[in-house]
């Protein structure tokens, strides 16, 4: 099998340069590539365009990159719960493109499936449609949305093997599989890295062909954004 293993996050992201476009998996703080984000903060690379459903919170996730002014532009569907984000947006330091969540996911999917564009009804008749081609199919209007073009996709999986096959856990799956398919170079960090043969081929969510670099992350915090419980 082809070996995709790199020693750690620093090595995985070593050739990410200023001005690049990155996809970062996760929904809220669930299933985010914590180790890679920390490594990007440490490296200090800047002027980045980040495609990610959310922008983290002030002191965790992509919020850490915002604190260091590493992000030039965010492409997201929902960016609440982040005071530093709001400050940079209002002062004009940060550019933000808000797009519907399904459009975000499907533009990733299109890239991974080798399709240049998709047609979606989301945003027809709204400001999201401004400047976009509209086509009518069977009496309904659809917007043409382009596949994303990202230099790197950075995802977090539960288990992976040395040849890059990935298995996600629970709703930490979210955007990770579609982003894994969409990067020119895809970096996967996993909680548990195993040898080929230890994962059941029938259970693989992302085949290793889509993954270029893989490493076992450490010290996962897995912060909970909204802790909701019921009483016994």
């Amino acid at each position: 099998m082809i070996n995709k293993v790199v020693s750690n996050a620093d090595e995985a992201i070593k050739d990410i340069e200023n001005g690049m476009t990155l996809m970062l998996g996760g929904f809220g703080l669930c299933g985010i590539p914590e180790n890679s984000i920390n490594a990007l903060v440490k490296k200090g690379v800047n002027n980045l365009t980040c495609i990610s459903n959310n922008a983290g919170v002030d002191d965790f996730g992509i919020g850490l990159m915002l604190q260091k002014r590493q992000v030039k532009k965010m492409i997201s569907s929902y960016v609440g719960e982040n005071a530093e984000f709001e400050r940079q947006l209002l002062s004009g330091e940060l550019e933000v493109e808000l797009i519907p969540q399904g459009t975000l996911a499907t533009r990733c999917m299109a890239a991974g499936y080798g399709m240049p564009a998709i047609f979606t009804p989301a945003g027809v008749g709204t400001e999201v449609a401004e400047g976009k081609e509209i086509r009518n199919f069977n009496g309904k209007d659809y917007l043409m949305e382009m596949a994303f073009d990202a230099d790197f996709a950075i995802v977090k999986a539960w288990k992976g093997d040395t040849s890059g096959n990935l298995i996600f856990r629970s709703t930490a799956r979210n955007f990770n599989p579609v982003m894994a398919m969409a990067g020119k170079i895809t970096i996967a960090e996993v909680e548990e890295l195993v040898e080929p043969g230890q994962l059941d081929p029938d259970q693989i969510h992302t085949p290793g062909i889509y993954v270029h670099r893989i490493f076992q992350g450490e010290n996962y915090e897995k912060r909970i954004e909204q802790r909701t419980v019921r009483t016994r």
């Binding site: 809220g28 909204q226 802790r227 419980v229």
Partner: peptide, 16 residues
């Protein structure tokens, strides 16, 4: 139940 929250299992409102 309290103590059984799983950070990998949330809804679209980011609630456990």
């Amino acid at each position: 139940f309290e103590g059984e929250e799983d950070p990998d299992l949330i809804n679209a409102g980011k609630q456990t």
